[in-house]
Design a protein around this nucleic acid. Structure first.
Lengths: 187, 187
DNA sequence: CACAACATTTACCGATCGGTCAATCTTGAA
DNA sequence: TTCAAGATTGACCGATCGGTAAATGTTGTG
């Protein structure tokens, strides 16, 4: 299997897991939806869980790249970029077929902290924290990590409520809260 | 089966689902862990999903009762009670075997908004919102619903990060953010 | 004690689970 | 053109999935 076919497989697996959940999508269904036979899949991934970790790593890369690009397109100053992260969030929520966050769902299905899938999800959120922390620091916030923690909490809460209740309400309220917290952190 | 035995069943099912997840715990394992045979379970619940909904309803009642009691024990004034909700959250996170929130996990495994399990989870969060909204109103906040939305976002985000990263850090930062938002809403 | 009514169990259903294997197909170098 | 190497396949593995049926216990009432 070529590298690009393998990427296709992971990309399609990502879509399937996103739509159906991790336990709910079996390997037979996965083979059918990706167009790659089970045996071919198992040539490249030792277990289903290895494949899930690979999809999470791909999603981590895609999502953080997208987020950074959107933030930089929406604002040029670090302070404005902190707030722009929440505008990007709103854009994400509006995407057709938005189904909450792969990593939150992964940690829900694989609860044990020691599990590689859970750990991969935790790592993704840690990288998001670092990004927010960098922006806060550049914006001149004294305790940049404290603000980054607070903004990350808003982000995760907004995702959960966008999925459970209403995307627009969640995005708007998270943005408003972020604005207040950023302003206070800069006094 | 007596009413109390049925309650025992649901209570034990709640523990099992909480520990293992919904898809991951099969009916055979559930029968073994609750001490009630599958046939006996199916005498009272038409499907596994009906049983899950029953466990969520029980958890909703238990959790909200507990939260209200803790909040009232920790503070007597509405404004203080808004903040006390986050102290209660910290207490919950510290409980041994804390495994995130049953409702977030349920909505992760049953993503379709039309699904009864997802709807039950959404309803629980709506009731929490109403509670926060009432407290905010009593505290004299002008736009009580806006503040309640923001505090609910903090709550959900703190739960997610308590599970993925660190309970103490998540609780402390959510509390600090809540304090800022409450103060600003009262100006 | 007799017995009907109900609760509970064991054994089983077809379907699907994650994963494997022998056989077939494709392909590129000699 | 041949043929070995690697990719791919469908068929299959035992285990478990959600759910059911027939048989066995249990219990309150006459």
């Amino acid at each position: 299997m070529s590298a690009s076919k393998r990427d296709d497989l992971v990309q399609n697996a990502l879509k399937a897991f996103n739509r159906g959940g991790y336990h709910a999508i079996g390997m037979d269904k996965l083979a059918a939806e990706t167009g790659v036979s089970k045996t071919a899949i198992y040539k490249h991934f030792r277990t289903k869980e290895d494949l899930i970790v690979a999809t999470l790593r791909l999603r981590d890369e895609q999502f953080r790249n997208w987020m950074v690009r959107r933030v930089e397109a929406l604002a040029s100053e670090p302070k404005g970029q902190l707030l722009a992260a929440f505008d990007a969030l709103a854009e994400w929520f509006r995407e057709p077929g938005f189904q909450s966050c792969m990593f939150i769902k992964a940690s829900s299905e694989y609860q044990d902290r020691a599990h590689p899938i859970h750990a991969t999800a935790a790592e993704h959120k840690r990288l998001l924290f670092q990004y927010l922390s960098k922006l806060a620091d550049e914006a001149g916030v004294e305790d940049a990590e404290a603000l980054a923690h607070q903004l990350l909490i808003l982000t995760e809460g907004a995702i959960v409520l966008a999925h459970l209740h209403d995307p627009e309400t969640a995005a708007a309220n998270a943005r408003a809260a972020a604005e207040t917290l950023i302003e206070q952190a800069l006094i």
